[in-house]
Design a protein around this nucleic acid. Structure first.
Length: 238
DNA sequence: GGCATGTACGAGAGTATATA
DNA sequence: TATATACTCTCGTACATGCC
């Protein structure tokens, strides 16, 4: 039995922004109708539109129970967020919703730590090793790459070679808190070294130097030292 | 023409909801 | 509670397009 892929269509930022803006206003059933109307101009095929709606709902609406409190907190502030902060939020929720997207991101991040340019072929091969050698994996990988290009995360330097766009610096304590909670969730962990969080390949497009003082004030986490140098951040029980 | 890539469609399994 | 029905989600694959 091969691992499910799910993410098989390019997702645009304006679709994610719109979904986020509507999430607190409508019931689940209403959301399908609202999104269908909104996407009608961009996606003409009925089936493709339904597929896109499925993805948007999974990213923003049907989030893991553990992440709902921080998702709701983000939604309260969503209109005040900068485009860069919104991008990180979309990125984090997509990673949490789609393990395939997470694995592609992790592979990109790992390779970008070693080199300046990454070929889509290398990513494709790696995904086929993990998810099976099938056309669906090619379609999904291309959908993830297409989304990352559309979000201006990566830039093509030639036909199948990509370089990373300038890293986005994140300073807001709310967004940093979100960032840490997403990492703890997707890595299925209650505690992580601060150094590992700040340099994790999953968030390769972002530069997030944690503001420990402000994060301490948010009460969601506690900190302790492991040895002389290593600072560990731990999720507080709810 | 062959190949790669993006988009669309139909099928089927799984899940949620309505109704008796 | 059990069953029927509707809806959601994922998949394989067909088709269109562009490039070599």
């Amino acid at each position: 039995m091969s691992k499910p892929v799910g993410f098989d269509q390019k997702v645009l930022l304006n679709h994610l922004d719109y979904t986020a803006n509507q999430t607190k206003k409508h019931s689940r059933k209403e959301m399908y109708t609202v999104l269908d109307n909104y996407l009608r101009d961009d996606i003409t095929g009925v089936k493709s539109r339904k597929n896109a709606i499925t993805m948007l709902m999974k990213i923003w609406y049907r989030v893991d129970d553990e992440l709902k409190p921080i998702r709701d907190e983000i939604l309260e502030e969503f209109s005040q967020l900068t485009n860069e902060e919104r991008l990180l939020v979309h990125w984090g929720l997509t990673i949490a919703a789609y393990p395939f997207f997470k694995d592609v991101s992790n592979e990109f991040g790992r390779l970008f730590q070693l080199q300046d340019e990454v070929s889509s072929k290398a990513i494709n091969n790696r995904m086929k090793e993990a998810y099976g050698d099938r056309r669906r994996v090619e379609v999904a990988t291309s959908a993830v790459l297409g989304s990352m290009k559309a979000w201006n995360i990566i830039q093509p330097v030639s036909k199948s070679i990509y370089t990373i766009s300038e890293k986005i610096i994140i300073t807001s304590s709310l967004i940093q808190s979100f960032f840490v909670q997403i990492l703890l969730n997707v890595l299925d962990s209650d505690a992580l070294h601060v150094d590992l969080i700040e340099n994790h390949p999953l968030f390769f497009p972002f530069n997030c130097e944690l503001n420990i003082t402000e994060l301490r004030e948010r009460k969601s986490f506690s900190f302790y030292r492991q040895g002389v140098k290593d600072l560990v951040i731990e999720r507080n029980p709810i």
